[in-house]
Nucleic acid binder design. Structure first.
Lengths: 203, 203
DNA sequence: TAAAAAAATGAACAAGCGTTCAAATACGCC
DNA sequence: GGCGTATTTGAACGCTTGTTCATTTTTTTA
């Protein structure tokens, strides 16, 4: 059965299938984090699950689709952050702090220090365009918050584009060094990053 | 002739050879920046120079050696920054600002927004160990400067390790978005980064 | 409990890529 | 200017990896 063709299957089978897809994505993320997408083989992913690589084709049409599904999950998390930050915060400063803190938390808790930010060019052209669009949406919200903060006097006169690149660089780099078993917990880390990066901006 | 075996050749031939090696490294860096080390083929590198991939073996013993040589150049630049910053600066704050500014300048002017920071695990074990040691030296200098600044009261009570990871993340990410033809010049960028990251630290 | 569906397997294939090698071409040098 | 050296070439090889496919095994469902 093709990867997402779940029409006419029972809820039980659908659940089982979703669970397996989730396991594959989790195994893929762990290996991509360790050695990058191109150096990750389907054998590597399958080995983590105790199955043969040919079984993966029951759930995903090809290797690229696995990477793409990882990206979609990540982007959907970021979309959620955008949505929640619009509702929870009174000032631009507060909103940016929330976004930084929560982005760090997502990076460290849910997406295993997600290496996806480094693996966009590996996607096929159509999928890459979609992922870039999603990433750009998130980036633009960050820029808008920074620009609004400059305008309101909360932040000093920085270029939103540069500031946001620096912020995202600091956050994405967490994937390169964060050890879940290390001393820094994700929530503490998020606080430290928010404080550091916000203080870099305030007027 | 093996890659670095230049005993008994004339200065002219040695110069020519060094120039060619530099061209190869430059072509390699450009392609690695575009698509990552694993997705970069020897054909890709050779194409940029108008030669066949088999000619590369005249200058480097293998593909890994090309990546390794790129790293060594990069590390030697960073060693120079360390040395110069020890001589030029009166305070920890000034020294850290210098290092950030100059690191950004090197990234944008000399090593084509160097993607090397992302490509360490691709090296063979021995070479990787050496490159990691070199990178750690640089990182430790940064940490020491931050720690000394905290101690002297120039910086607030941050964890040097976390702060330096955030700083390096912001800087290394430049390789992902910096466009040499874009608006931001490396020197301006270095100033902005130094200001932003320093202000994030001051007491 | 048996038939149908889902999931997994092993074998095989095609393509790509790093590397080697002998030969040809270009350059250096006396 | 000719011999020696440096550089490049095209062909070939071995290996890896993504993918396909027929078959087997396991699970689901009525």
């Amino acid at each position: 059965m093709p990867s997402e063709a779940t029409a006419n299957v029972s809820p039980h089978v659908r659940k089982k299938r979703e669970r397996r897809r989730g396991e594959i994505l989790h195994a893929a993320l762990a290996t991509v984090r360790e050695r990058g997408y191109h150096a990750t083989t389907l054998d590597d992913i399958a080995d983590r699950l105790g199955i043969r690589k040919t079984a993966l084709y029951h759930y995903f049409p090809d290797k690229d689709a696995i990477l793409y599904a990882c990206h979609r999950e990540s982007l959907s998390e970021l979309d959620r952050l955008i949505h929640d930050s619009a509702a929870c915060c009174a000032s631009n400063r507060e909103r940016l702090a929330y976004l930084i803190r929560e982005h760090v938390r997502v990076m460290t808790e849910k997406l295993e220090g997600s290496p996806l930010a480094f693996e966009v060019s590996a996607l096929s052209p159509e999928r890459r365009a979609e992922v870039i669009a999603g990433r750009d949406r998130y980036e633009h919200v960050l820029r808008d918050v920074v620009a609004a903060g400059v305008e309101s006097g909360e932040f000093r006169a920085v270029e939103p584009k540069i500031a946001v690149f620096a912020i995202l660089g600091a956050i994405n780099w967490i994937a390169r060094w964060y050890d879940p078993e290390g001393g820094a917990r994700g929530t503490d880390l998020g606080e430290q990053f928010a404080e550091f990066l916000l203080q870099g901006l305030v007027a």
